[in-house]
Design a protein around this nucleic acid. Structure first.
Length: 277
DNA sequence: GATATCGCCTGAAGGC
DNA sequence: TGCCTTCAGGCGATAT
């Protein structure tokens, strides 16, 4: 499932493969992918003729800067962008198709139809991005950001790290990995973390996200980047998807519980319920 | 206002 | 083999 490192990899692939593409016409095969403020008809009318200037990223969102408009695109679970030749058959999972002037298509493909694309006129871009209400990127995260957010909530630390308004870009896989690296139990109340634990947490977030970006993200289930290539960070996962296997630090079996409505993996020995400085 | 839960979706996997 | 149920999960909407 695309989290920050996977979305960053998609962004880089699109900038390499799709910068300068011009839209000829548009097909929307599953209207729910296109979300307000633009309706589907408006979307189909506005896109022809537009040229893709570049693609940026904020948290898990892709930002497509077209000549006139901005797309804010979220891949959710399994969304991906592909650039096949227009003659290639369209499979049943391709829901938004831009026919391009160079004979290719830009296709949004999403088995589960969870992803969303929003279109805004460029003069509304800054406000639209601000309205996403995202916290700092991991690379910009300060200990004080977490300390102040955690101090005013009764939630457990796992739920807080999944909250995109506290830190942008983490999803279920990386939150489990980060908490393992920082030796923090996912059910700890966020406000109970010590200064030392917060410091380890910030360090773990930054280190793991930057390593995962360097490896092109994590491929579990069906994620591939815009080139259809796999990421390689799954080889470095320590706890996610490892229930019952030995902890790489202490060999205690990794446990799996349900927390914040997510499958949650942790080592019950390394990640204690009490403060661990 | 803060927090928890539901619904969206479909394919894979497991049980019978 | 075939049918049914459960699971995976990000986020907006809705409920508490």
């Amino acid at each position: 499932m695309p989290e920050l490192p996977e979305v960053e990899t998609v962004k880089r692939g699109l900038n390499r493969l799709a910068q300068g593409i011009q839209v000829r016409d548009v097909q929307v095969l599953w209207p729910a992918i296109i979300q307000a403020p633009a309706g589907v008809d408006d979307f189909i009318q506005r896109m022809p003729g537009q040229v893709l200037e570049y693609v940026d990223r904020r948290g898990k969102y892709l930002l497509f800067y077209w000549t006139e408009d901005l797309w804010i695109s979220h891949l959710r679970m399994e969304g991906k962008y592909l650039l096949p030749n227009s003659e290639e058959p369209v499979d049943k999972y391709s829901h938004v198709i831009l026919h391009l002037s160079d004979g290719r298509d830009l296709r949004y493909r999403d088995v589960r139809k969870f992803g969303r694309i929003k279109l805004y006129p460029k003069d509304q871009a800054d406000q639209a991005i601000a309205d996403l209400n995202l916290g700092p990127e991991p690379g910009d995260l300060q200990l004080s950001d977490l300390a102040s957010a955690f101090a005013k909530t009764q939630r457990v630390v796992k739920a807080c790290l999944l909250d995109q308004s506290i830190v942008a870009g983490l999803g279920n896989i990386y939150v489990d990995e980060v908490l393992f690296a920082a030796k923090i139990h996912p059910e700890r109340l966020a406000q109970s973390l010590s200064h030392v634990e917060l410091s380890r947490l910030v360090q773990a977030i930054q280190q793991i996200i930057s390593q995962a970006v360097a490896k092109g993200g994590t491929t579990v289930r069906t994620y591939t980047n815009a080139l259809g290539e796999n990421g390689h960070y799954q080889e470095d996962l320590k706890v996610y998807g490892k229930a019952g296997q030995a902890c790489p630090r202490c060999h205690t079996p990794i446990e799996k519980i349900k927390l914040a409505q997510r499958g949650t993996h942790f080592c019950p020995y390394c990640q204690r319920r009490e403060v661990n400085d």
